[in-house]
Write a protein that binds this DNA or RNA. Structure first.
Lengths: 182, 182
DNA sequence: ACCGACATGTAAACGGTTACATGATTTT
DNA sequence: AAAATCATGTAACCGTTTACATGTCGGT
């Protein structure tokens, strides 16, 4: 997974490991995280496999190692892009927690759900800030799909907040579902 | 994570490892998966830690090992339930993929997105079937929150399908966001 | 002089996936 | 008689997290 993401990040530009970390944070940080402890070994693996080449270009006394994608790397990236996607993969541990909330006393449960809702509201604010930032940029049509994932994050977080409000008040669950006829 | 989920599953009833696997699949399979290769070692760790006790109760010639939660286990489960939740944890690898879809030719992209949408529609059908099944059950108020996560899955999958349709046609992304004034 | 951001890495511990191994019981 | 499901586990492999280690550069 991480390897494919790295290939995607360097697919049109050479970057350093540090750059790639930043790109991941700012780009898909909404739904994916990578630490240096996984990133650098992954870069090494990709280099050993012949998917990347490296060159040094120190800036001042600062060591900098750039990664460049090879044709083999491009091929593997493309193969990943068009490989079948299992939509059930991925985890959502906070939901697993709420699954057990019937076990909690009403007071504590209320408090926990409220906290969860607030966390989502704060998160939504961050995503909206990001959106505003990107909206000021030009030639947005060049990264429509990159932006689309940010909008997905906003949509889903909005829905999550609505869901939170709903289940805090223990309203009928079936009211949550949209009419299929629409 | 898995350890906490196991504790949750046995918190009101003794179960075998096999049972627990099924409970996880049917209960939170929407957003969490566990294999025997992780489950049985986790059960062993929990037993060693004193969170679980075991007893054998063979049925016929079939070996059956039941796990029972201890007070220490109950305490740890409760601590987890009320521990602060990081809503940014968890991964969504299919979204990471779509992030790179600007790199794809329009034809292949269209095809991939359509496939993704169909996968989500199939998945939604499964979730709706589950919902119908649970709706026929009695005393639903006893597991309102357990059910709430299923409804969350349905809501989010519906939204995902809408989002898919939207970005397939490259409609303006800002149209995706609900009015904040509402 | 110090702090925060830049920059690259390593090692231990941990946990998860996959595949394998074994055998009983129920269903077709 | 065969296939599916019940039932418990192990082992190799792999990747991630966390913490640590080292050093540069720009701003205050």
């Amino acid at each position: 997974m991480l390897e494919s993401i790295i290939l995607g990040m360097v697919s049109d530009n050479d970057f350093t490991g540090y750059d790639i970390k930043k790109l991941i944070e700012n780009g898909i940080g909404v739904f994916y995280k990578a630490s240096y402890g996984s990133l650098y070994p992954a870069l090494k693996r990709l280099t050993d496999k012949g998917c990347l080449t490296t060159y040094e270009k120190p800036q001042g006394g600062r060591k900098k190692i750039f990664y460049h994608i090879t044709e083999e790397g491009q091929k593997q990236f493309f193969d990943w892009l068009v490989s079948p996607t299992d939509i059930t993969e991925g985890t959502n541990t906070h939901l697993a927690k709420i699954y057990f909330f019937d076990n909690l006393s009403p007071e504590i449960r209320e408090q926990q759900l409220l906290e969860y809702e607030i966390n989502n509201r704060n998160y939504l604010r961050k995503l909206n800030d990001l959106e505003n930032k990107y909206n000021k940029m030009e030639n947005k049509e060049c990264f429509y799909y990159k932006l689309s994932t940010l909008y997905y994050g906003i949509c889903i977080t909005q829905k999550t907040i609505q869901w939170c409000q709903h289940i805090r008040m223990q309203k009928p669950l079936s009211d949550l579902i949209q009419d299929k006829k629409s």
